[in-house]
Design a binder for these strands. Structure first.
Length: 235
DNA sequence: CTGGGGAGGGGGCCC
DNA sequence: AGGGCCCCCTCCCCA
């Protein structure tokens, strides 16, 4: 059974997610003279439905629904500002653009509105149809969907995994292969993570320390157990 | 109860 | 875009 309840918690803030690809098309796209069509695809890729017909996403991928599929309301006024680098002529060439909060006769208006109101929504643009998770990129979502479809199947026992390397690790449980050995005691492990955890046992000062009693633990789970057992309960 | 090993999952990065 | 790999994390189980 997949441990779908496992959710990444950014406890280690040193390793931050890469948000570079979350940039709105505003800053990047137009400065490189991207075509309007590409701009529309960019908005679509960011999960923003448009009133122009675009090729649909794969059936198992759905942009998050913050934006209705039908955007026919044209009653709102133009929200555009005056900072747009595009000329008035350019603006006149553009079809009407809309989003759930209104419609825009210029795309600079739409972009400005997006900057003000929609960036938070576009950061997570792709939702999983199997669960409630949302992802900022199609690739991340596809990766996640593998945890539902489990395409990597062990030929020996039939157990299925989301990724090939997980299957490889599992196959080692059949073959007994243990390619990772401890330099201190030569004990071998099939999994690098488990070797890393084992290495902590050789250390006098372990990685995870109780803030109250300064006792150290080789694993976060052991520290949590320690905390839950009462040492660090606020008295 | 505690510590440790085994197994597996997630996202990010690089190629 | 996808695969491989990395690191981190978690749960289960056992001594």
């Amino acid at each position: 059974m997949p441990r779908s309840f496992l959710v990444k918690k950014h406890i280690n803030s040193a390793k931050k997610p890469n948000y570079s690809e979350l940039e709105s098309p505003t800053g990047k796209v137009f400065k490189v003279e991207r075509t309007f069509t590409n701009f529309l695809f960019g908005l679509r890729d960011a999960g923003l439905p448009l009133s122009l017909p675009l090729s649909p996403l794969p059936s198992d991928l759905s942009p998050i629904s913050g934006y209705p599929s039908s955007l026919s309301d044209t009653s709102s006024k133009d929200h555009s500002g005056s900072e747009s680098p595009r000329s008035d002529e350019d603006e006149q060439m553009l079809p009407k653009l809309t989003d759930p909060h209104g419609s825009y006769s210029t795309y600079s208006g739409l972009l400005k509105h997006k900057q003000l109101h929609c960036d938070a929504q576009t950061r997570k643009s792709f939702s999983c149809k199997y669960c409630e998770k949302e992802y900022v990129s199609l690739g991340a979502l596809k990766m996640h969907i593998r945890t539902h479809t489990l395409p990597c199947v062990c030929k020996i026992c039939g157990k299925a995994f989301s990724r090939p390397w997980l299957l490889q690790g599992h196959i080692r449980t059949h073959t007994g292969e243990k390619p990772f050995s401890c330099p201190h005691c030569n004990r071998a492990f099939a999994d690098r993570s488990n070797l890393r955890a084992h290495l902590q046992t050789h250390s006098d000062v372990k990685k995870y320390q109780c803030k109250n009693c300064s006792k150290t633990f080789s694993r976060m789970s052991l520290l949590h157990k320690h905390e839950e057992s009462g040492c660090c309960v606020a008295h």
